[in-house]
Design a protein around this nucleic acid. Structure first.
Lengths: 198, 198
DNA sequence: TCACCATACGGAGAGGTTCTCCGGTTAAGG
DNA sequence: CCTTAACCGGAGAACCTCTCCGTATGGTGA
């Protein structure tokens, strides 16, 4: 996530830069209100530009989402890096997964959906970059927990991230229950089993 | 799920009954192919009826989905009932949750989405009935596990079901990995922590 | 200062979707 | 057979995503 290659694609004219900013702001508010069901048309309208302008700046929903959460992803990677210094490698991994889940609890499930979505023909390279960055940070934490902690060798960071995003998504389906995510996090931390699995 | 109240709403004329059946069959195949993104128009087309006919039989996506999975839900409840005789209450609950998750892994995530969706203004009463039925079966299993097994008292069946559906949904996002659901199930069974949580 | 032109804008519109409405058709019962 | 309530189907309204292209304008060299 450093020296963003997308910088070279930033608009050069002042009006374009302004529109880009206004689109991002509008997108943030519309997504917060309506989640993944939000209409991109509405975002353009709220930003005071035509649909064509929106689609030139952000060719699809993925690109727009990534542009919004880019900073958060960077922060998550930084947190992961810091946690490599944590005295307990296991605790560090758990803390980071919790942070990932909490981050994915935004915009009514849109973020979790995007973070889990596997790359398709039309998905932007920026989304893939996000995935890569998160994956790299997680891999570092997991590998430390496996070598210096108690994490079993067969644990897969992709599975853990999927799980974190899944519970984030699920907890967004019942937005009226503010403690749901914490309970689900606790559930996967203690495990359902309270009895060794057969 | 016994003496379905929806029976009284079944079409009375033979042609209507035939169309209903053909619509369900078409829906099953289209959903299997395209998942939640499937067009209801396409279902009507494949069933050889007009859109109006589809929407009269099933006023929305929820109603159609529920009609398709109704039998499965019934089977799940029956399984839950049988598992009440299982020698290990804890194992019974775990087995049943696995079955719920496996059931929700159908039609490319559509089922999991519907099972988690909380009732809205437009969602059908049939969907609520499904939720109730599953909840009742789960409550019986959990309460037995709490009284005669080792399940902690603060465990909530709604949370467990949410978790089961969440991992089902997540595993459907990567349909190329057939063992993903099993790995995620194992993950929530053993718990992430391999260390007691702080 | 001005003229030029690459850059960016915006809206019309193509092609999709969900869902409704209503005139015509047909199955079931007297 | 005849009536009528039940049912059908398609036109169409109101959305959606995304593209295309003529027009406007900000930045720049003269």
């Amino acid at each position: 996530m450093k020296s963003n290659p997308a910088d070279s694609q930033r608009p050069q004219r002042a009006d374009a830069r302004g529109n880009r900013g206004r689109l991002l702001e509008a997108a943030r508010s519309v997504f917060a209100e309506e989640g993944p069901r939000a209409s991109l048309n509405k975002i353009a309208q709220r930003a005071g530009v035509g649909p064509g302008t929106l689609y030139r700046h952000f060719p699809n929903l993925q690109a727009l989402t990534v542009a919004i959460i880019g900073d958060d992803v960077e922060a998550l990677c930084a947190l992961g890096h810091d946690l490599l210094e944590h005295p307990s490698p296991d605790e560090a991994l758990r803390t980071w997964l919790g942070a990932v889940a909490r981050h994915a609890t935004a915009m009514q499930g849109l973020v979790a959906t995007q973070m889990i979505a596997q790359p398709t023909r039309k998905s932007s390279a920026a989304l893939a970059a996000c995935h890569q960055a998160i994956l790299a940070a997680g891999t570092a934490l997991l590998s430390r927990a496996q070598h210096q902690g108690n994490a079993p060798a067969e644990l897969d960071i992709a599975d853990l991230l999927l799980l974190a995003n899944a519970i984030a998504w699920a907890s967004e389906q019942a937005p009226t229950d503010p403690h749901l995510l914490d309970r689900l996090l606790a559930l996967i931390n203690t495990g359902v089993p309270y009895l060794p699995p057969s």
